[in-house]
Simulated scan of single mutants.
Amino acid sequence: MKKFVYIVTDRNRTSMHVGMSSDLIKTLDFYKKMPSLFFDSAQQLTRLVYFEEFRTEAQAIARFKVVSRFTRMQKERLVRSCNPDWIDLTIGLDFEHILMSKPINTQVTMPLSILS
C-alpha cells in the first residue's frame, strides 16, 4: 500500500503542516470538513502544496521525521523545488482519482453502417 508525506498550507501560506497518510484524498477531505480542528478558522489548512509517495510505511515514516524537523525556510524551498507557484495539488489528485475509479472501456464499437 502506498504512503504519502505531504505539506498543506492555508490560503495565505501563513501556516504549514507536514503529515503522513495512506489516502491523500481522504486526508485532505478531512482537513476541509474540520477546518478549525488544528488551527483557528483563519488558518484553514486546505491547500496541498507538496507530497511524496513511498512504497513502504518505514520509508514514509523516515521521510516524515526528516521533513517535519525542517525549518519553515527549508519547507518553503522543498515546496518551491517542485511547485514554484504554490498551486493546490488537490485538483490533480481528484482528477486522477476519478480516472482511476472509473472502469476503462476496452470494448471496440463499430458504426452500424459498417456492419450492414
Rank of each mutant, 00 (worst) to 15 (best):
I25F: 14
L112P: 05
Y6N: 07
K2Q: 05
R47N: 14
Q59C: 04
K33S: 08
D10I: 05
S36N: 15
M73H: 10
R55V: 06
R55M: 10
S81I: 06
F51N: 05
R11T: 13
D23Y: 06
V49L: 03
F39Q: 11
V67L: 06
R80G: 02
K3E: 05
V5E: 00
L93D: 06
I61T: 08
E76C: 09
K3I: 01
F70N: 08
M20D: 01
R13G: 00
A42Q: 09
V49R: 03
F38C: 06
L78C: 13
S36L: 06
C82A: 08
D94V: 15
K75T: 00
D94I: 15
L37C: 08
P111I: 05
W86L: 04
P35Q: 02
V108R: 12
I25N: 10
T106A: 03
M110K: 12
K26V: 00
L112Q: 13
N105V: 12
L28V: 01
T9C: 12
R11Y: 12
M100T: 05
E96G: 09
I104V: 14
I114C: 15
Q44R: 09
N105D: 14
V18P: 02
K102R: 07
I87M: 07
D85P: 00
A60F: 04
K3Q: 09
K32P: 00
I91N: 13
D40H: 15
S21A: 13
N105E: 11
M16V: 10
D88Y: 03
T109V: 11
K33W: 02
A58C: 04
R80S: 07
V108H: 07
E96A: 14
L24P: 03
V49I: 10
I114H: 15
K75Y: 00
K2I: 03
R80D: 03
D23R: 15
T56W: 01
Q44I: 02
S81G: 13
M16W: 13
D40P: 14
E52K: 05
S21H: 04
E96L: 12
L28M: 11
I104M: 12
M16S: 11
F30R: 10
R80E: 14
E76D: 09
L115F: 08
K102V: 00
K65M: 03
R13W: 07
Y31E: 07
K2E: 04
N12S: 15
R63D: 04
K3H: 13
M16C: 11
K2G: 01
I91K: 15
M73T: 10
V5Q: 04
F39L: 08
I91H: 13
T71M: 00
I104G: 02
R47P: 00
L99S: 07
M34A: 13
T9E: 02
E53G: 01
F4V: 05
R63W: 05
I87K: 09
T9V: 03
G92R: 14
V18C: 09
E76H: 05
S113R: 15
S22P: 05
T14K: 14
E53N: 01
N105K: 14
K65D: 07
L115Q: 13
D94P: 01
F54S: 08
S116R: 12
F4P: 01
R77S: 09
I7C: 10
L45C: 10
I104S: 09
